[in-house]
Nucleic acid binder design. Sequence first.
DNA 1: ACGAGGTCCTGCGAGC
DNA 2: TGCTCGCAGGACCTCG
Length: 265
Amino acid sequence: MVSDIRSGLEGRRILQARLSHDDVLRGVSRRALLAGLKGARIRSVTRRAKHAVIETDRNRLVVQPGMTGNLEVRRTELPAAERRYAVLRLELDNGRTLVYQDVRRLGTLLWLDQAGWDRYDQAIGPEPLDRSFTARALQRILEGSRAAVKKVLMDQRSLAGVGNIYAQEALFAARIDPSKPAREVPQSRVAPLRRELVRILRAAIRAKGSTVRDYRTGTGESGQFQLELLVYDRAGEPCLRCGTTLSGTHAIDARITVFCHRCQS
DNA sequence: ACGAGGTCCTGCGAGC
DNA sequence: TGCTCGCAGGACCTCG
């Protein structure tokens, strides 16, 4: 998402900002956000964890899209059917518009000054795609917790950017039981887990993410990685490795977890 | 330190 | 057909 919009945004000035729902804002008022955005120049657009970070010559706009949010640089008006889902619209000085759409509005928008951003950034764990994310680094994360390994992988404070889908896929690929306490994951499985996490996240980014449900009709592109998911949303279907019926449980953090009780231990 | 459970919001599928 | 109901999702919260 970020790589798609970066070139259309960097260096642009925001002429006008419109917000149609206040309930996505965290820690900033509508008035302050809109006043800050209007007239700001976009310096850079980057990704941190699951968030798009739009740095301006004033504050940073941090977009947490959740599962249903989407950022798009458009040269035309939104189709009428999608207009009601547009949460934030930024008119740029080249005639284009940055649109943040979010059907369910579980996504959030933050407007952070330097100190706020530093605090925010420091509270998030390391990026799995950084060089520094070694098997040893993962080992340290896992051995610090008795919670289920899947929960630890999804906890943004321990590791950045891994959500329900990719945690399940990586644990399946590395043959680890998602409910196993993190500190009990055998050392011999840590390097494979790191490798699979990195492989899956890279592949997902390359495929432009996983479009699991498309809430809107007539949208442009959706991600393609859902075609490569081996366990997610496949409870009751055969394991693609051994044929055993995949199990589905809500027992971990009240989130659906699908795994193969035969392959993953 | 941990699990359990609730909250936000809305589309959708199931059931009547 | 038309209704209600429960569920899904990520981050964050409280409670025990």
